[in-house]
């Protein structure tokens, strides 16, 4: 088990109380001084943000459902970087711009990032994006308000959230809280409630920012079984070695073959 210099902190985003107000999106942008991200009306319910990317670090998803006999359901979920225990973005970052902070969070250091873009397709959740604005070209994502944490403030989104759908705290505590919450919803007969990313044994070792969802993850645009790609890195390095050897053998064979 990895140890952190301080207690590992994170988010528990409880979508069962999310009212879809998007205060988290704005709070995040105000604090982190994020550029505007386009004004396109999508017609996708009330979601005109569409995705997480370099200029959107909180994204509220809206899903309208009509289920037989059960009336309407309007799911809202504030998505964010998962701050994975085993974070592909961090693993693959060639410069060390992405690093694990003393709080156990995953942060891109903007004075280091050179915009190689490797982390972008590495993330199994599509969280990171490269800022294409002139003179930037770096990759940005949620920092879990690293600067605020250092000053003892809670992250901007969690602070703003009117209904406490976004809860911030030590991860262990959040997990306990989430378990209790799930148990309550199950007692209340809330259909489809589940924790997403709470399990430390999942493909990314559990999220630092996990969720309570009311439907399958893909309904919200989340992958149902994300796996950190570097989990297979040893295997890939073995293939690499074998293939490298293959080149040597092949070339040798080309010379040897000529003599026979």
């Amino acid at each position: 088990m990895t140890t952190y210099e301080q207690e590992r902190v994170g988010f528990f985003t409880d979508t069962s109380v999310c009212i879809g107000c998007k205060a988290c999106e704005v709070a995040c942008k105000e604090w982190n001084l994020i550029p505007q991200d386009g004004t396109t009306w999508t017609g996708e319910s009330y979601d005109n943000t569409s995705e997480l990317n370099a200029n959107t670090w909180r994204h509220v998803a809206f899903v309208e459902q009509e289920r037989n006999g059960d009336g309407l359901r309007w799911l809202m979920e504030s998505d964010v970087c998962k701050h994975c225990t085993h974070a592909a973005c961090l693993d693959v970052c060639p410069t060390g711009a992405l690093f694990r902070t003393e709080f156990g969070t995953v942060v891109v250091q903007q004075d280091i990032c050179n915009g190689c873009g490797y982390c972008v397709p590495a993330c199994p959740f599509g969280v990171l994006g490269k800022r294409e604005e002139p003179k930037d070209g770096r990759v940005w994502k949620c920092t879990l308000c690293y600067d605020r944490l250092k000053g003892g403030h809670e992250p901007a989104c969690a602070k703003a959230c009117p209904t406490n759908s976004i809860q911030f705290g030590p991860l262990d505590e959040l997990r306990v809280r989430a378990d209790a919450r799930l148990a309550k919803l199950e007692r209340d007969g809330v259909e489809g409630a589940r924790l997403y990313g709470r399990d430390p044994d999942d493909g990314v070792g559990g999220f630092g920012a996990f969720f309570l969802l009311l439907d399958e993850p893909e309904v919200y645009g989340l992958p149902p079984d994300p796996v950190v790609s570097t989990r297979h890195l040893p295997q890939m390095y073995r293939s690499l070695a074998a293939a490298a050897a293959g080149i040597v053998v092949g070339i040798a064979a080309a010379f040897v073959g000529g003599r026979s």
Binding site: E5, L90, D91, G96, A97, L98, F99, R100, T101, E102, V107, Q109, D111, I112, C145, Y146, D147, R148, K150, G151, H153
Partner: peptide, 20 residues
């Protein structure tokens, strides 16, 4: 593996919330 404190830049180390 260079994924933690070794990779931290001085700026990150000195970072403080601007409201301070």
């Amino acid at each position: 593996l260079g994924r933690g404190r070794a990779a931290q830049s001085p700026r990150s180390k000195a970072l403080r919330p601007r409201i301070d």
